[in-house]
């Protein structure tokens, strides 16, 4: 019987595990079946449902860029039942993956523009997919600025890639940690993301801002962007809500009339403003 059951995940093997920060890990996943791999494609911004059989499914974005073919990556923090059991797995173990689900960052439309990425803490993963996607198509965009903050130095994820971005002449990377989170070797900034953003005062001219972070960071970052002259259409963010199915049937992730899983997770600030405050 051909598998048309939308609940049956792909089988994926954990190829590589990277410890990013305390309780944060990145899995590089490969399709076990060649056929699945050949049929599969995704675009930046999309997410999936990751299964540990016997424990359940958990939702994370695809943290790798579509331009890097042959694998997908996800980064997660140990929090609930599924993420804890995911964290217990080893390289070579098999998990399930359903996806890709959700909408995308419209990077085609951003051609010829400056990009300003603003991320906080464990919200860098969804952003990382876009960043690499854009950097892999670097000639399409003008200035690329990345502002990334975390609570402390040890909480910064993708430390190698931060170093790589930092070394690139065509990327302007600013990293910051919350006051008190620095260590003696810290060379980045100290301060909350919205404050640092104000200090940086980037131009809103011909610029797209992409913001991902904890609700409190987002709440204080939007007004700064507005002050800098960013229009609501040019500010993008991703929403997270509890999900089960991933395709708009189970009924729990909606914000007003939109399902975060189906109509999101990527929203412009303009769209966000039309949504009721239920996220």
């Amino acid at each position: 019987m051909e598998n048309t059951n939308i609940y049956v995940p792909y089988k994926m093997k954990i190829e590589k595990i990277t410890e990013e920060a305390p309780f944060v890990k990145t899995f590089r996943l490969k399709f076990v079946n060649e056929e699945d791999a050949s049929k599969f494609s995704f675009r930046t911004g999309q997410f999936g449902e990751y299964s540990v059989y016997g424990e359940g499914e958990s939702t994370f974005c695809i943290a790798s860029a579509p331009t890097r073919e042959g694998y997908i990556e996800c980064t997660f923090r140990e929090a609930g039942r599924v993420t804890k059991s995911l964290a217990n797995l080893d390289e070579g173990d098999v998990i399930g993956f359903r996806g890709p689900y959700g909408n995308i960052f419209p990077i085609e439309e951003w051609k010829g523009k400056n990009l300003l990425f603003i991320a906080g803490g464990i919200a860098l993963p969804p952003m990382r997919s876009v960043i690499w996607n854009c950097l892999d198509l670097r000639e399409n965009f003008k200035d690329v600025t990345i502002l990334y903050g975390a609570r402390s130095v040890s909480d910064l994820v993708y430390k190698h890639e931060l170093a790589e971005w930092n070394a690139r002449p065509d990327v302007n990377l600013v990293t910051t940690v919350d006051p008190g989170g620095e260590d003696p070797d810290w060379k980045g900034k100290v301060g909350f993301v919205p404050t640092i953003l104000s200090e940086m005062s980037p131009s809103s001219e011909n610029t797209i801002a992409i913001v991902c972070g904890p609700p409190i960071m987002i709440k204080f970052t939007f007004p700064v962007l507005e002050k800098l002259g960013f229009t609501d259409e040019n500010v993008f963010t991703t929403l997270e809500n509890r999900m089960k199915c991933g395709f708009g049937k189970c009924g729990r992730c909606n914000v007003g009339k939109v399902f975060v899983c189906k109509d999101g997770p990527v929203f412009t600030l303009k769209q966000m403003k039309e949504l009721p405050n239920e996220y």
Binding site: Y53, G56, E57, K244, C250
Partner: peptide, 10 residues
């Protein structure tokens, strides 16, 4: 009403 939950049992 069609809302549902997904649960594993081993």
């Amino acid at each position: 009403c069609g809302c549902f939950d997904i649960q594993d049992e081993t």
